[in-house]
Amino acid sequence: MLMVRAIIRPEKTGVVLSEMLEGGFPAVTKLDVYGRGKQKGIKVGDVYYDEIPKVMLITIVNDEDKDDLIKIITKNAKTGKEGAFGDGRIFISPVEEAYTISTGKVGL
């Protein structure tokens, strides 16, 4: 199992979640987060913004489903055909075990 964490632009959340559901990935945790990427924030006039609002989507998938999910996220989170700075990042981490609290069932 793998944990997929995608940090995306807030305005892309609806379409990404919709396409994840359509693609067979209904389970997701959504968090509002703030941060900055490689661009080190944004300067507008004399004002510097280093806490840019983003959304983090977290889901757990079987190893063999990772590539399909990444394609869905990257296709729908990208701005324009070429994408742009600030479109986000996807992080993949191994998950050793998962338990359903109500049933005690192990796995997804």
Rank of each mutant, 00 (worst) to 15 (best):
I90Q: 09
G88E: 01
K66A: 14
V55M: 10
I42L: 07
I58L: 14
I92C: 11
T100C: 12
E97M: 08
A98T: 15
K43I: 13
K40N: 09
K81P: 07
V44H: 10
E97K: 15
V47T: 13
K71L: 04
I70V: 10
P53Q: 04
K71S: 06
T59K: 03
F85W: 11
V47A: 05
T100W: 10
T100V: 12
D50W: 03
Q39R: 14
Y48Q: 10
D46I: 06
I60C: 10
V95G: 11
N76Q: 06
K66L: 14
E64I: 09
R89I: 12
D50C: 00
E96V: 14
E96T: 12
G83F: 02
L69G: 03
K81T: 11
V44S: 08
D63H: 12
T79H: 10
G41H: 01
R89F: 11
R89D: 11
G88L: 02
K43A: 12
V47G: 05
K40I: 06
F85E: 14
G41F: 02
F85K: 15
Y48T: 13
D65M: 14
Y99M: 10
K81C: 04
Y99A: 07
K71M: 00
D87A: 07
S93T: 11
I101L: 11
D65S: 15
E82V: 08
I42N: 00
T100G: 12
M56C: 07
V47I: 13
I72L: 14
N62A: 15
T100Q: 13
Q39C: 10
K78N: 00
G80N: 01
I73V: 10
E51Q: 11
D67Q: 14
L69F: 03
P53Y: 04
V95I: 15
S102F: 11
L69Q: 03
P94E: 11
D67C: 05
I101W: 04
D87C: 03
T79Q: 10
V47F: 08
G83S: 03
Y99N: 09
I52W: 05
D67M: 09
K54R: 06
G83N: 00
P94V: 07
S93Q: 06
L57P: 04
D65I: 10
L57A: 02
S93P: 01
K71E: 05
R89P: 02
P53W: 02
R89V: 13
G45P: 03
D65F: 15
G80K: 04
E82C: 05
E97A: 13
G41Q: 01
D68V: 12
